[in-house]
């Protein structure tokens, strides 16, 4: 019996009288990919930000299994500890690559930043690692000294992924990783993500409104509406046999080409 990597208990976040998310409760096991779907304003990004420590939840606990094996509450832990986590064991892929990249720093510098943040001080090794990672996300070595401003949207997103995965995180948060990309680029990115997730044994929480993304990537699914989880279960089960009226609506809204 394995223990969960992340235990989320009764997380709630309110914006005044409005509900961000309420009574969210789940476990994430090592190697598992959890999808969170819902329409705009359903609280899925709020939830993700609470889990990743960008927002402080008003109630509830988020417990993460540290490398030592103990479970630590990331809501109450000290800020230095949380920031250390977020540049070693955690990764956060933003919807807009611009939010997650340093646009005035070269691709190699972007990938190397996390290495340098955890103490790497050998230029040759940092650069080698950066080039290796660019290769893994299908960016040519010749682009290593170019700035992300010179990259296409899909390349920026792949660069952001490389920059996040370089320190070998165990948990990846993704906020609409394919948003704003055209379909063929999306397909390549999804393919890449699926490969990396399987190869590195990553656990991930993916927030998206795109059901195709979760169908491909997620093992389990939570459907959110108005800040509450209305349905959860195995991805195929939820998508093929939706029980809640809102999930049924969501599944039937997908355009068939």
């Amino acid at each position: 019996m394995t223990t969960p990597l992340l235990e989320v208990r009764d997380i709630a976040k309110f914006y005044g009288h409005r509900i961000g998310c309420d009574k969210v409760d789940f476990d994430l096991y090592p190697g598992e990919v959890m999808g969170i779907v819902g329409e705009s304003g359903s609280g899925k990004s709020t939830l993700l930000n609470c889990l990743a420590g960008h927002l402080t939840p008003d109630a509830g606990q988020v417990r993460f299994e540290m490398r030592t094996g103990e479970m630590a509450d990331t809501v109450t832990m000290s800020e230095p500890e949380r920031r250390m986590l977020s540049r070693t064991d955690w990764a956060f892929v933003h919807q807009h690559a611009r939010d997650g990249l340093r646009m005035n720093v070269s691709a190699g510098g972007n990938v190397g930043e996390r290495l340098m943040a955890v103490g790497a001080r050998h230029y040759g090794n940092i650069r080698e690692e950066a080039i290796d990672w660019l290769g893994r996300v299908e960016i040519s070595e010749t682009r290593v000294d170019d700035r992300p401003t010179a990259f296409s949207g899909g390349m920026q997103q792949r660069l952001q992924i490389a920059r996040n995965l370089v320190t070998g995180p165990r948990l990846v948060f993704m906020d609409e990783p394919t948003g704003g990309l055209d379909v063929s680029v999306q397909a390549r990115l999804l393919d890449l993500l699926r490969g990396l997730v399987r190869e590195m044994g990553l656990s991930a929480i993916i927030v998206t409104h795109d059901l195709a993304v979760v169908r491909l990537l997620a093992d389990r699914l939570m459907v959110m509406k108005d800040g509450h989880v209305v349905e959860s279960g195995l991805t195929d089960q939820v998508l093929d046999d939706p029980q809640h009226a809102y999930t049924q609506l969501l599944v039937s809204s997908v355009l068939q080409v």
């Binding site: 920031r83 510098g109 930043e113």
Partner: peptide
């Protein structure tokens, strides 16, 4: 205050890369 100085080396990295 948290002694997070990795970014300073990013600047030096950029220098060497360029």
């Amino acid at each position: 205050s948290l002694e997070e100085y990795g970014l300073m080396h990013v600047k030096l990295y950029e220098d060497i890369a360029q």
